[in-house]
Structure formats: structure tokens, C-alpha cells
Design a protein around this nucleic acid. Sequence first.
DNA 1: TTTTGAGTTGTTCGA
DNA 2: GTCGAACAACTCAAA
Length: 480
Amino acid sequence: MAPSICWFSNDLRLDDQPSWRAACERGEPVIALYVWDPEGEGDWAPGGASRWWLHWSLGSLDASMRALGGRLVIREGPRAAVLRAMAAETGADTVYANERFEPAARASNAAAQRELAKAGVGVVWANGSLLHDPWSLRTGTGVPYKVYTPFSKAWRARCQLDAARGAPRTVPWFGGALASASIESLGLQPSKPWDGAFHALWTPGEVGAKERLKAFLAGPVSVYSEGRDFPSQPAASRLSPHVHAGELSPRRIWHEAERAASAQPAWRGTIDKFQAELLWRDFAHHVLANFPHTAERPLQPAFEAFPWHDDRQALRRWQRGQTGYPIVDAGMRELWATGTMHNRVRMVVSSFLVKHLRQHWRHGAHWFWDTLLDADLSSNSLGWQWSAGCGADAAPYFRIFNPVLQGEKFDADGVYVRRWVPELSQLPNKLIHKPWEAPTAVLAAAGVVLGETYPRPIVDHATARDAALRALSAIKAPAS
DNA sequence: TTTTGAGTTGTTCGA
DNA sequence: GTCGAACAACTCAAA
């Protein structure tokens, strides 16, 4: 019988990996293949931070396979051509792969499948990245959901979650010699070294992912529901980059969380909250898969006419964490230094960009895409459109975060700001989120010179808020 | 078809 | 300082 190819993409794991299991269980020789094909991702080729992660995650997967007596074969080029060539080279007649749901990836995967069919090679698709496929859940009238709550209710009522299945015990490795590109040759590492702090914070790969999940469910999850809004508390799971790379299956996470809840009944509520985030992730994929234009354009058509500003200088100051609003700057600097940003702060900085600076949400989406280790097209698009008020379940027009109040509420002791904006660290708690209100003597004592050691606010909150509200009313009720 | 209740994460103002 | 209401009107989803 002919060998088969297991084609890896955003599923860089062996545990609960349906296409890997299917390929191994077929019993014929298996080739484990990763194809580096950024062009197949359309306008959303992996950003810098995602590439950094991918580099190490591929290494981890290859190491796991070598420990099992095999290896990961890596090739570069258009997926259709690479897969077809590999099939021709090995005589493989079947490709096993997990589906992708982002519009460009879906299209190029479909094209690859057609190309393979011409050569008599079949593709067997599985879903390894979502709890549930994004197509079958529909409202009573048969259309996709646009609101999270009914989506989640329908999910809980109608979706059965299969058990997670461990890695296959034996792998019938393909015996022939196959050329493989080295991971280094893919050029995934940054040319300028901005990833200095990453290694201390992250362990890309399935092993690190499992450890982090275990550690999270052993303790921090118990305070997740109350603590997750406070950026200086260690209550976040920090699993998202692992999930994005596919090093953990969402199904595995769900079941492990369920197990923790059974062992600790008092944690039921907080674990519900945590599991709901997995449903949000599914919801984001549901929205992008069914409304494929929403990576670029607003779900709500009225927002096509929104009067965005185009101020490169302001955008740059936002990106660099130089807006003069400490909580915003702390978040943007955390992002740059660590490849992540606390969720609460993501909302604050995105609201600030689209409401206070009135820069198009796409600018923010692109910056996050390049700098976030967990950059996920579905979640990123949903999140930015939510912040801008133009997407599914969007924030109401009047919900404009006040960066001072957000700081005072969620970083009352200033621990988060002091960590990321050290030039303000000597200010007292009462002023750390609004240094421009500090008396001269206090500023001097703290070694702060506004406009020199730390910027003055780029915009006045009240003024910017009013302008944003006016802009929003303009697209809802155009002046006649 | 029409109606009804609701909509992740907020702020401001006036009492 | 605390508290409740207002902040548009619309869209979504289900009854």
C-alpha cells in the first residue's frame, strides 16, 4: 500500500491531533511534513512575533518526533506544489491534514486539494483547532451567529465535545531518505534582536504548553475569574500563543479544565469563565469563516463611512508607548518587550487608538499581528472590530474607555505601570496614572520632566471623547 | 409576521 | 463618597 503524508500547519503537536492519529492508524508508512508557505496566507502571512514562535515550535515538534524514531520534514514553497512533489517523490496517495478556517488559507488549501486530485492523491481533512466546526451552528433562521451569548448557549445545548485522544503509541515512519530544509533556513528569526526577553518568558512547543496548562490548572485558575482583569496579577493562563500554534488542542484544555473542576468543586465558577474563553475563540472563527471580509472590512456596513484620521505620527507614538497615558504606554511596551499584552490592557489600548486617536482599527490590527506571539486572524479581527464598535457584539458607541479610570481601577497600586514605564516609578499611586496633574514639586521629586523624560498626553481625554462621539453620530444619523 | 428582551469587559452626571 | 440613570438607536435571536 502507498504511504501517506501528514501535513502539519497550525497543529504542531502529537497529542489529540486528529490528522496525525488518522495517518498513523492507517498503518501505512507516514511522512510528517511541514510546509512553510507564507504566501498561501494572503495578506496575513505570519508576523514577526509569530515567526519567532514558529521557529522554536517546529524545533520542539521535530525533537518529539526524533524521540519516536522519526523526524519532521520541512519544505518551503507553495503548498500545492510542495505537497504534489512530495507525493510524487514518495508514492503517497493520501494527505492527512487539519482544516484551516481563515479565508486565504482555506482558499489555498482548497487549491492544493484540487492540485493533488489531478495526481490521484486524496486529502482527508480533520478539525484539530476548534471545539466545533464553524459551519454547522446556525440560528433558528439558518444564518451564522453575530452575538456571542446566543452562540454560546446554542453551543452548550447542541454540541457534543468528544474525548481528547492521546498521541498514537506507535508511528509507522516512512523509511526512505527525504530532503528537509533546516529550520534556520526558513529565516523565521528576527534580523534585529528584539526578542531578548522572550526566552525567559516562553517555552514554545508542546512540552512547554502542557507544563503551562498543568501549572495554570493547579492554582492560578482558582482566581482567574476575579483576577484576570488585573494586569499585575498572575491570573491569566498565558496559553494563547501555544493554542495559536496548535501545541494544545482546545478540546484537551476544555477536558483538563473540567477535570480540575471535578477535583475542586469550589472552582466550578472560575473554570466556567476560563472555558468560556475557548468558546469566544470558536466564536471568533465562526464569525470570520462565515463573514470572510471581516479581516479587512467592518461587519457593520455603516462603518465603511467612518471618518478615520490618518496620522502616522500619532500611530507611531501609540506603537512605541509614547502617548503620555501611562496605562496605554505600559501596555504597548509590554507588547513590544514580551510579545503579549494583558487582555484588560488590550482593550484599553485598542479603545485609545480607535476612539481617542481615531486611527483606523486596521492599523491596530496590523501592529498586533506583527508583534503578538498569539496573533490569530479570527480573534484579532473580532477584537479590533469589537473595540471600534463595528463588529459582532461590538462595544456600544458610548463605551469609551477612560485611560485614567481604567488605570486607577485595574492597576490601583501602579505595579503594572511602574514595571513598564519606569520613568514614572517614583510618582505616588494617586498620580501615577495622570502625571500631568502632579504638582511641579512632586514631579521634580520623582525625577519626571513632562515633555522630556515622559511625554505630555497626546490628546486631552474629554476633548477626544467628545470628538469620537460626534464622529460616531455622524455615521449613524448623517446630517441632511 | 410581529414582538420582545437582550446585548463581555464603561463613563459621566446629577442627586 | 455613593448610587442610579442616561447615554442612540439598532441589530440580533428567539418566541
